[in-house]
Amino acid sequence: PLMTSWALWFFKNERSRAWRENLQMVTRFDTVEDFWALYNNIKLPSKLSPGCDYALFRDGIEPMWEDSSNKRGGRWLVSLAKQLRHLDLDRLWLDTMLCLIGEGFGDYGPDVCGAVVNIRTKGDKIALWTREADSQASVMHIGRVYKERLGLSMKATIGYQAHADTATKSNSLARNKFVV
């Protein structure tokens, strides 16, 4: 059994439909076995077409910043150079999901809401979403553990952006509230 139930969501960019209609819950699970039953039968992120996302969130939290669990929060963002899609993307996404369902963040685990992987022509992104952007101790602990669990080089930095900041600016201008 997992500590909580999780839900996998899939987003496919169909421009003729509203954003919310393009986002669909695939299924929920609450055991390790059911996680693998799902994972072993869906496409890897590197095989999705550009514009698609997967999101894995605690059951009851929708993968959008407007959800009450997300709106005061933010995300640790890992931006991948284009050439890394075929080398690292799938491994990094799997390791992200294993951190989530395995509750790898210890006492700050409840502050972790979920994660999103975006497949994009200009570079894929993986983001870990947390509940409270102003809880510095929590955000920094989660960021350090996450960076280490992904095996990112000490020379690499990842930034944390509050959703409130990202929502009002294009992503390239959203400031980093924290970095590790």
């Binding site: 500590m3 076995e33 996680f35 390791d95 294993l98 951190c99 509750e103 790898g104 210890g106």
Partner: peptide, 20 residues
Amino acid sequence: GKKQYDREFLLDFQFLPACV
């Protein structure tokens, strides 16, 4: 228990046959 599982523990389940 706290149900904190590390990566290697979780990976061990990936290809186990389901029990019926």
